[in-house]
Nucleic acid binder design. Structure first.
Lengths: 354, 354
DNA sequence: TCGCTTGCCGAAACCGGTTTCGGAACGCAA
DNA sequence: TTGCGTTCCGAAACCGGTTTCGGCAAGCGA
């Protein structure tokens, strides 16, 4: 009785099954069980099987912090959020976290989250988490162009994975969405509608994605035989307000663009605002394409045509990549990209001759 | 040389200062150092001081997972996010996390985050985190009316704190914003503008806050001598769409309300949409008051009058309360509430006689 | 002066694992 | 048979802490 097979034991450690329990049950020593569990070659295959089966049966799982004391690794992934970041990524955070913790838990890892409000504090967080063995490696959200986190962790030989790519790939692993492909596709989409003057509002230049997306836009324009006008390109727009401001500038060009591609949905919504203020009808007088797939875009009038990014999947992939990295796979084997999904909604249409 | 005082050690454990190092430096045994650090009474006060000073000087900090193996506690706070939750709380998440990890790190704790997509999985996450010593206690965001998490953790005698209050307070600690006061103040604000027919759209009834806010609304109406019309109250609106739907229902009442108080900003923005579709001008034909202080409210036209909640502070408070709870303080000493801050913006005005 | 408490600390066991080392048992060739 | 190399596992040390236990020395009263 009392056994409470799956209860949240009141009496703490009372009923944890330890490695010794398993060893006793098999008439082996704990050293043998340990080596069997960890796949050491000097254990007979039959024994290894017996041990693993029994462990399964007894529901034994080694205590991560007990192994950590010897191995130094505690089966947890570190994530340091940088808050001074404008709010752009906040809507993604929940899904991203869900993905990370899902990917982590599949392999028996957990996720440790810290936050910091400056580059300096991010570094300090890394150090503290490592020092205390609270993280075996790190996920770096929002890869930056000259990322100080990368420099640090690479030099220190600490495993990490980036959400986003890196110019100098040495020692870097990553998962990323091919934003450049999306921008190129956006151009094609608009060109197919007969747009000629297509503007581009890019995101924060400190982020690695900006360079890629700009290139995608340029490639698209070139491959469609469209000429690129420098006055139709604005860089470094982060917020909705930035987007509105940039849109005004673009709409003041002469001739103005008939379509604007935005590196982020936030910015695209800013374009909505600016255009609406000028009495331009989105999707008719002005076509807009965004990127990210944030919810506000779906609710805008008309719904924003955009490329949606699955941040949950990104989290899952990043977690599994990091775990493989921690387990010793070389970083160059651990690089993945995926495509964004085009959502053709209401904010594009053929250009209006006026 | 090479010492690399504060480097992110490449060579792993190589240079960690252990309890034995401190003991050697003082010509004491590690048992003495341990007891001194933990304030055992059988250590001379002078010795305790010497030890602590030396520890400070040598930058010694016990390895949490080394102590955990004996004590069972690992100095980390658990947070299990429930994703099936509609997206309402997502914008808050970043600030909330920042607050939590800030409050945690002040006391040398870290934050472990997991996620789940059902009540059942939440429970399993709790269990897994406890089992592996990944959490000494839990923060429970979004207190629910009959919260299964509370039942479980209370019975299991695991420390936890709620963001939100609980009807049956036994064993519960919490931090909460007094939404009922806000709703009451909203009524007063509108009554002072001469509104008589004031509608109320409440949030999800499964959440603990809904009951409180409704009561606040009712109290406010009563204390201002206004009569409450049941057709002007809608419960259980979670999303913007719900808000729009509820608003339509209210506006169909005869006579319709001249003002609507919403338990959340999300819902208030839904009211915006519904009202605008009917050609009602917010702030003129219809006054609206929200609650939460989300960013979209500030950008709406006109800016939404609301009560802003500081989720970062909430996180800090919750973390420190939980740590005190873990350290043994009785739960009834660990209950705090704070006021929301009224943001008088553009969405309210005197009722228009028509 | 003696015995007994009390204050303070060291010795050693312990926590739940990992890892090194050595040796028993076995197979096989000489 | 002996000798030798493998295969496989047990014994024991170890990781960095905590905690129990016991003993020494000082302090105290008789």
């Amino acid at each position: 009785m009392t056994a409470g097979t799956t209860q949240l034991h009141k009496d703490r450690t009372a009923m944890r099954v330890t490695i010794s329990d398993v060893a006793d049950a098999l008439n082996l020593t704990k050293s043998t069980v340990s080596r069997a569990m960890n796949g050491y070659p000097d254990i007979a295959e039959a024994t290894q099987l017996r041990v693993k089966r029994m462990a399964q049966e007894m529901n034994y799982q080694p205590l991560s912090h007990a192994q950590a004391i010897k191995t130094g690794r505690t089966r947890s992934l570190g994530l340091v959020l940088q808050l001074s970041d404008h709010d752009a990524h906040r809507p993604f955070l929940a899904e991203f976290l869900a993905g990370l913790s899902e990917g982590a838990s599949i392999e028996g890892y957990t996720l440790t989250v810290a936050s910091a409000d400056s580059d300096q504090h991010v570094i300090e967080s890394f150090r503290a988490l490592l020092r205390d063995g609270k993280a075996d490696g790190f996920i770096l959200p929002r890869a930056m162009v000259d990322d100080p986190r990368v420099k640090l962790l690479r030099d220190a030989d600490v495993p990490f994975v980036l959400f986003g790519r890196q110019q100098n790939p040495e020692g870097c692993s990553w998962f990323d969405i091919r934003g450049e492909d999306a921008m190129r596709d956006a151009v094609h989409h608009l060109a197919a509608l007969d747009h000629q003057r297509i503007g581009f509002i890019n995101g924060g230049t400190r982020y690695a994605y900006a360079g890629l997306r700009l290139q995608g836009y340029l490639d698209g324009m070139a491959s469609d035989g469209l000429s690129v006008a420098s006055e139709l390109i604005v860089e470094d727009a982060l917020t909705m307000a930035d987007g509105a401001c940039a849109a005004k500038k673009l709409l003041d060009a002469k001739p103005p663009p008939t379509a604007i591609i935005c590196a982020t949905d936030q910015v695209a919504l800013g374009v909505y605002r600016a255009a609406t203020e000028r009495g331009q009808a989105i999707g008719r007088n002005l076509s807009v394409v965004g990127y990210d797939g944030i919810q506000e875009g779906a609710q805008a009038q008309p719904a924003l045509t955009t490329f949606s990014v699955d941040n949950r999947v990104a989290g899952v992939r990043l977690a599994t990549l990091l775990i493989r990295r921690i387990r010793g796979e070389p970083s160059e084997n651990l690089r993945e990209t995926a495509a964004a999904v085009f959502l053709d909604r209401g904010s594009t249409g053929p250009p209006m001759g006026e």
